[in-house]
Computed example of a mutant assay.
Amino acid sequence: MDTGYRIIIADDHPLFRSAMHQAVQMAVNGVDLQEVDCITSLMQLLSETTDIDLLLLDLKMPGASGFSALTSLRHQYPDLPVVIVSANEETAVVQQAMRLGAMGFIPKSSPMPTLVSALNIILEGEPWFPAGISLKDIPEDNIAERLASLTPQQFKVLTMLSEGKLNKQIAFELTVSEATVKAHVTAIFRKLDVKNRTQAVIALSQIE
């Protein structure tokens, strides 16, 4: 496969970044490959770089806990293909990644040929998940699904609520009116089926 793909590996373990780097180079010729070891560096890179073809994202690294990073990325960069690469291979974790819009899930225990094969399939535009796992066993009333229904601005407001910020502070930071913030908060409550800020913040924490 000879292309000019631009790929980011986001993982805080140097040895695994090296293994993924090798797998990517075996799957793709002439790839522009960049690596980051924390969410802060990832967000900075994404803000400076355009046309990223694929992000290989570890679930646990500095600045990320559980699915918080994936959820945030899906809202801020909805067109960015994200593949989770994780040591946690539980079926429920893989299903949650599916529900939140990941394009794939590659267990870290996968042998090199599997890594290369998975990357080839994903870069052809097809999702790749471990065999035998589907969404059929996930309850329909899934908090991840409700969070995924938020708009990017609503998710940003919810994140700021979780930081304990008041409507006035949120309005100032987002350069919008307090009335706009209140409208976002009302929409967040409705979409998450909660009645107050505390319940909304708890809902967000459930994906971490």
Rank of each mutant, 00 (worst) to 15 (best):
D2N: 13
T3Y: 13
R6E: 04
A10R: 02
D12C: 11
P14W: 12
P14G: 10
P14H: 09
R17P: 07
R17E: 13
M20L: 15
M20K: 09
A23V: 08
M26W: 03
M26T: 13
A27G: 12
V28F: 02
V28W: 00
N29R: 11
G30P: 06
V31Y: 00
D32P: 02
Q34P: 01
Q34E: 13
Q34N: 12
E35V: 15
I39D: 00
S41P: 01
L45K: 14
L45F: 06
L46S: 09
D51A: 14
D51F: 00
L59Q: 11
L59V: 15
S65G: 12
A69W: 00
A69G: 08
S72A: 12
R74A: 04
H75W: 01
Y77D: 11
Y77L: 10
P78E: 11
D79E: 15
P81V: 07
V82C: 09
V85M: 08
S86Y: 08
A87V: 08
E89F: 02
E89N: 12
E90T: 14
V94I: 15
V94M: 05
V94Y: 01
Q95H: 07
A97C: 10
M98Q: 10
L100H: 01
F105Y: 15
I106F: 02
I106C: 03
K108F: 07
S109M: 05
S110W: 07
S110N: 09
L115W: 11
S117K: 11
S117H: 12
S117F: 10
N120P: 01
I121F: 08
I122R: 00
I122K: 02
E124W: 05
G125Y: 07
G125V: 13
E126D: 13
E126C: 10
F129W: 06
P130Y: 05
I133S: 04
S134R: 05
S134K: 05
K136V: 05
D141W: 00
N142E: 11
A144P: 00
A144L: 10
R146W: 05
R146D: 02
L147V: 03
L147G: 00
V157R: 00
V157S: 01
E163D: 12
L166S: 12
N167Y: 04
N167T: 08
K168Q: 12
A171V: 11
A171I: 09
F172C: 05
V176M: 11
S177H: 08
A179H: 09
T180R: 04
T180H: 05
H184G: 03
A187H: 07
A187C: 07
L192V: 06
L192I: 09
V194M: 03
Q199V: 07
A200I: 05
A200D: 03
V201N: 03
I202H: 09
L204I: 04
L204S: 02
L204P: 00
Q206H: 10
Q206S: 13
E208S: 15
